[in-house]
């Protein structure tokens, strides 16, 4: 009894497998869809910050410096070049000086030639509390990033309206915080 029962099971199983075998071994797949695959990933990175006081805007003779500059080496390799679509900088400033400031960020190539200036420049009004500025490098300007070897930061201090000068004992500060948002599209290249 048991034998015949299992014989039936075996026959049914064999029939099932035959159906499976002859049904065909694949359903429709389209590997060309990979050409349309886009993986959008966004990464945030901390950048530079400043805490500048009165002496930072004065020379050795305590005279005002109209333009204060600094350079940062750009550790950029080309690995991400095909995938980077946009960069968005967030800059938060706070200024207790009675002066307006303008911050300019310039990209320099390996020969020290300026190749790109972030637009717009960041204007920091006198005695301003926390201000957030967002600057975008659009897709068409991304290649400049990969030719950049140095970022140049220049702070332009406007002259005072009443002709007064910053004193070395001035307790005012110019603070800046920044971050970058990098928008990648990991697609088939």
């Amino acid at each position: 009894m048991a034998v015949s029962y299992f014989m039936k099971i075996t026959k049914l199983t064999a029939a099932a497998f035959l159906i499976l075998f002859f049904q065909g071994c694949t359903k429709d797949v389209d590997f060309n869809q990979l050409d349309d695959a886009n993986i959008h990933a966004t990464y945030i990175s901390t950048l530079i910050y400043l805490n500048l006081a009165a002496p930072d805007f004065l020379d050795d003779f305590n005279r005002e410096i109209a333009v204060t500059e600094d350079l940062v080496q750009a550790p950029i390799n080309n690995d991400s070049k095909p995938y980077l679509e946009k960069v968005e900088f967030t800059v938060i400033t706070e200024n207790t000086f009675s002066r307006n400031f303008r911050l300019s960020i310039t990209f320099y190539d390996a020969f020290g030639t300026p190749i790109y200036v972030l637009q717009p420049m960041i204007n920091v009004p006198e005695n301003s509390s926390e201000l957030t500025t967002i600057i975008e490098i659009p897709k068409q300007d991304i290649p400049y990033i990969y030719n950049t070897k140095f970022f140049g930061f220049a702070i332009f201090m406007s002259p005072s309206i009443d002709g007064s000068a910053i004193s070395i004992n001035d307790a005012s500060t110019f603070d800046l915080k920044s971050s970058a948002k990098l928008f990648f599209n990991f697609r088939k290249i």
């Binding site: 901390t46 530079i48 910050y49 400043l50 930072d56 204060t68 500059e69 600094d70 940062v72 915080k177």
Partner: peptide, 9 residues
């Protein structure tokens, strides 16, 4: 890392 503090020195 909080970032690089530029000192403009």
């Amino acid at each position: 890392l909080e970032g690089a503090q530029l000192n403009f020195d």
